[in-house]
Simulated assay, not measured.
Amino acid sequence: MSLSLPLSVGAAALHERAPAKVNLSLRVLGRRADGYHELVSLVAFAGTGDRLSLEPGPLGLTVGGPNAAEAGAEADNLVLRAATALAAKVPGLASGHFHLVKHLPVAAGLGGGSADAAAALRLLARLNGLAADDPRLREAALETGSDIPACLNGTACLMTGRGEGVAPVTLPRFGMVLVNPRVPVSTAAVFRLLALQPGEVRASVPGPPPADRGELLAFLQGEPNDLEPPAHRLAPVLADVAGALEATPGHRLVRMSGSGATMFALYDDCRAAARAARLVKATYPVWWVKPTVLG
């Protein structure tokens, strides 16, 4: 296990990216006796996201950026909750003031808060000389939120359980367009509409995803996002978002990420994605539309 040296007192701020999490598939296998839902999700990360910095000193948080107003009360932010969880596990943990630049929309199914919290844990690990595979990081991540363990490495993985299982996978590179109609969707409300009872099992675990581009797309056709139908009931505008993406030339897959309300489309390359994003934005100028890459 390799260790990095702790940051010296008075050193400059540290910086981390917090890339958007995209659920290429999301199966709800059932509901456990403890109330958590048993999931299996092929998770990838986009080339866009939030940014987080840490300046050594007293623990604190400020939020800026185009979507700062949507981020909610700073005291409830997952960044501070993750830092507090890690401090309870690492005696004498050095901390500092976080500054979050919020680019991603909130309650959007992109794991923005989880990615921010994971970035905070990475920053604290660098500040304190903790190894990236220190088990206390993953423990603090899972304690803070189910998506955060998958976001710790920020690389494609198969996420299982309620988020505690994270197995790295290799995926081909795609161009991608993310579209959010600026309508938040409550994850809790989506799961309530599933109406699964504790102990109920509804699906089996799929096999591993293939790495070949064509085979992966075929695999994804049979591995949907089970949260998409209830999310459509809560946010009917998702049908318009899906239609707008399906009208773009060259799209290979159109699907909702997480519990919504962000939809994505995959393309063969970033140029096709950029052209598609321009078309969607021209028709729906108030939507959040972001061309990026996946993989």
Score class of each variant (00 low, 15 high):
residue 86 L to R: 03
residue 86 L to I: 11
residue 87 A to I: 06
residue 87 A to E: 09
residue 88 A to R: 14
residue 89 K to E: 15
residue 90 V to C: 02
residue 90 V to N: 05
residue 92 G to I: 09
residue 92 G to C: 11
residue 94 A to R: 15
residue 94 A to F: 06
residue 94 A to W: 01
residue 95 S to D: 12
residue 95 S to L: 12
residue 95 S to P: 05
residue 96 G to H: 03
residue 97 H to S: 01
residue 98 F to T: 01
residue 99 H to Y: 00
residue 99 H to A: 11
residue 100 L to N: 04
residue 101 V to H: 03
residue 102 K to T: 05
residue 103 H to E: 10
residue 103 H to V: 03
residue 103 H to C: 09
residue 103 H to K: 02
residue 104 L to M: 14
residue 105 P to A: 13
residue 106 V to A: 15
residue 107 A to F: 14
residue 107 A to H: 14
residue 108 A to I: 11
residue 109 G to K: 07
residue 109 G to Q: 04
residue 110 L to N: 02
residue 110 L to W: 06
residue 111 G to R: 06
residue 111 G to Q: 06
residue 111 G to W: 05
residue 113 G to M: 12
residue 116 D to L: 07
residue 116 D to C: 01
residue 117 A to L: 10
residue 119 A to D: 02
residue 119 A to I: 04
residue 120 A to G: 03
residue 120 A to I: 01
residue 123 L to F: 02
residue 124 L to P: 06
residue 125 A to F: 06
residue 125 A to K: 03
residue 125 A to N: 09
residue 126 R to N: 09
residue 127 L to F: 06
residue 127 L to K: 04
residue 128 N to M: 02
residue 129 G to W: 04
residue 130 L to K: 07
residue 130 L to C: 07
residue 132 A to H: 08
residue 132 A to N: 04
residue 135 P to R: 01
residue 136 R to I: 10
residue 137 L to M: 05
residue 137 L to K: 08
residue 137 L to Q: 05
residue 138 R to P: 08
residue 139 E to A: 15
residue 141 A to P: 00
residue 141 A to H: 07
residue 141 A to G: 03
residue 142 L to A: 07
residue 143 E to D: 15
residue 143 E to Q: 15
residue 144 T to E: 14
residue 144 T to Q: 13
residue 146 S to V: 06
residue 146 S to P: 07
residue 147 D to I: 09
residue 148 I to W: 11
residue 149 P to R: 13
residue 150 A to Y: 13
residue 151 C to S: 06
residue 152 L to T: 05
residue 152 L to S: 08
residue 153 N to W: 14
residue 153 N to Q: 15
residue 153 N to S: 15
residue 153 N to D: 15
residue 154 G to K: 00
residue 154 G to Q: 07
residue 155 T to R: 14
residue 155 T to D: 10
residue 156 A to H: 08
residue 156 A to T: 07
residue 157 C to Y: 13
residue 157 C to L: 14
residue 158 L to K: 09
residue 158 L to I: 09
residue 160 T to V: 05
residue 161 G to H: 03
